[in-house]
Design a binder for these strands. Structure first.
Lengths: 126, 126
DNA sequence: GTCTGTGCAAATTGTTTGCACGCAA
DNA sequence: TTGCGTGCAAACAATTTGCACAGAC
C-alpha cells in the first residue's frame, strides 16, 4: 500500500509548478532550502515512481541529464541546442498517428513524442 | 586536417549496415573480432565526431544508453518499451512543421524528431 | 507494530579524457 | 617528420542501491 509523504508531495508540486522541465538536481536545489534534510536519492526515487505510474513523464536526456515534465497532457517540446532549455510547444498535429503506425508496422504504439531542436530566441542573438 | 582511419571507416560502415540503431557497446562488440585492438573509447570518440558533423545522428537514450543511426534521411522511430529495440518508421508527416513552430514561438527550429513508443510485435505476444 | 519512505554514502555504469605510441599524409 | 587517431586506464558524472532509521497507517 502506498503511503503519503510530505516530500513526495513537494517534489510533485515543484515539478508541476515549473515550466523549465527540470532535472532531478534542479528540483533538489529548489526544494533543499525548505526541506533541509531532503536527499537527492529521494528525488530520483520519486521521479522514477512518477514516471512509472504516469504522474509525470520524461522529456528525454539533454546534455547528459534527464528532463522531466509534470504536465501530462499530450504536447510537444522544443529543445534549444545552445543553452539546453526545454519549452512546451502546443501541437495537436497527430491524432490517429499511433493507430496508423500500429497498423502499418505491426506494433502497438501507445504514444509518441514530437521534439523540435534549434535555437531559442535568447540564443539566436549570440 | 582530418585523416583517414581504417577503424573510423569500419565503425561508420557497421553503423550504416545495422538496422538496430546500435549503442557504442554494440558496435564495439561487433567490430572487436575483426579489429582485436579496437578500443571502446575510439568508438565513442568517432560516434561523437559523426554526430557533430552530421554523418550520423542520435536516436536518443534508451534504457540508459545512447542509440545511434547511420541513416540521416528524415524519418521517425519506434522504441519498444518491452525490449528496448529501436526501428525505423517511414513518416513524412511534417513538411513545414519547423517553419510553423519557428514563426509561432519565436525560435529557430532546424529539425524535429518524431518518436513512437509502445510494444513491438515480438513483445506483444508475451 | 508494521511497512513504506528517506538520508546517507557507497556502488554502478555509461561516457569522457590524458598521455604516450601508431599510423596516415 | 608532422600531427591526427588510438589503446589503455583513470577520471567523471548521473543515477541507483543497501541499510538503518523515521514517519504514515
Amino acid at each position: 500500500m502506498k503511503k503519503f509523504s510530505r516530500k513526495r508531495n513537494a517534489i510533485l508540486g515543484a515539478l508541476r509548478a515549473s515550466k523549465e522541465h527540470p532535472t532531478a538536481e534542479m528540483l533538489y536545489a529548489q526544494l533543499k532550502p525548505e526541506y533541509p534534510d531532503l536527499s537527492l536519492g529521494t528525488v530520483y526515487r520519486n521521479l522514477a515512481m512518477f514516471k512509472e505510474e504516469g504522474t509525470a513523464l520524461s522529456v528525454g536526456v539533454v546534455d547528459g541529464q534527464e528532463r522531466f515534465d509534470g504536465w501530462t497532457e499530450p504536447h510537444s517540446h522544443f529543445i534549444c541546442e545552445g543553452c539546453g532549455s526545454v519549452s512546451d510547444i502546443e501541437c495537436k498535429a497527430g491524432d490517429g498517428l499511433c493507430e496508423a503506425v500500429s497498423e502499418r508496422f505491426g506494433v502497438r504504439a501507445t504514444r509518441y513524442e514530437l521534439t523540435f531542436r534549434g535555437l531559442c530566441a535568447a540564443c539566436m542573438k549570440s
